[in-house]
Design a protein around this nucleic acid. Sequence first.
DNA 1: CCGAATCCCAACTGATACTG
DNA 2: CAGTATCAGTTGGGATTCGG
Lengths: 144, 144
Amino acid sequence: MKKVSLGGCDRANPVLPFGFWLPRKLVEGRMYTWNDKPYRCPVEVAFAAVGGKWKCLILWHLHLDKMRFKELERVVPGVSQKMLTQQLKEMERDGLIVKTVFPEVPPKVEYELTERGHSIFPILEQMHGWAIAQFDLKKSAEDE
Amino acid sequence: MKKVSLGGCDRANPVLPFGFWLPRKLVEGRMYTWNDKPYRCPVEVAFAAVGGKWKCLILWHLHLDKMRFKELERVVPGVSQKMLTQQLKEMERDGLIVKTVFPEVPPKVEYELTERGHSIFPILEQMHGWAIAQFDLKKSAEDE
DNA sequence: CCGAATCCCAACTGATACTG
DNA sequence: CAGTATCAGTTGGGATTCGG
C-alpha cells in the first residue's frame, strides 16, 4: 500500500490527479482544455491522443519507418479506409505525424512520425510489457 | 528518425507491434484474447484495462488510499452512479481493485487497489508528464 | 448507503459507393 | 492511389427509478 506524499491533503480538500492540488470548489469544474474539449486530468489527454482504436498500431508501424496510405491499410489488420483516414487526421492535427503529398499521378502520400510522435513510444512499450506481464496474454492464432 | 532493430523484417512479412514478429497470414487474424474480446496488440489490452472514461481518476484516488463508494463519487467530478459502478466492476474483474463489503446497515463498501492496480501507476505518471510537456496543458479553472 | 434495472439519446464504427 | 460521402448498426453514457 504505497502512499505518495501530498503535504496535508485530506478528503475535504481533494487533490487532483498526479501531483496537482486544488481546493474543493475547483475540483467541481473542468480542469484542462485540449482540442476544445474539457479533461479532468492530463492523463486523459494522453489517452485521447494515442488511445484511439487503431492509433497504437499506426504509431508502431510509423515508428519503424514512414509509410504510404495503402501500406498502412495493409499492415493494420481490419481497419477500414474511413477509420484509417480519420485516425491519421487526428494524429496529424495533434502533431504526432506529418503527411507529405507528392503531386503525382497516381497520387502518393507518405506519413511519418514527428518528434512528438516518437516520444510516446517508450511509454507504449512499457504498457506493452505491463499488459503481457499482468494478463498472461497469448496469441490466439496458431502458427503452422 | 529512430529505428528499432528487427532482424530482417520487411513489409511483405509485417512485424507485430512492440517486439513481436509473425508471418503475413497470421497478421490477418486476431492475435490476443482478453475478456473474450480480440485485440491486435497487448497495448490495446492495456488501454482497455485502464483507459476507460473515469478509470485513471479512480486509480489515482485509490492509489492514495482505499475509499468508499460515496467518497469516490464525490472526488471524481461529474461521474454518474451508473458509470462509477460500471468502471469499478470492470476494474475488479480485471484484478486492479478489490471490493470489501461490510455487513452493516447502512451498507459500507470499500475499494482499494491490488498490487496489479498499483503497478500501473508509474506508467500513468509518465503519461501525465508526457501530456503536460507535449501539449502545454493549462488549467482552465482559475484560483482566486 | 450501495447499488441494479430501465429507457433514451448521442457518438462511434463499418460497409458501400463514389471522386480527383 | 488516396481519399469523401452517405447510411445503418452498434455502443457508450446520462437520467431516472427501484431494491436490499
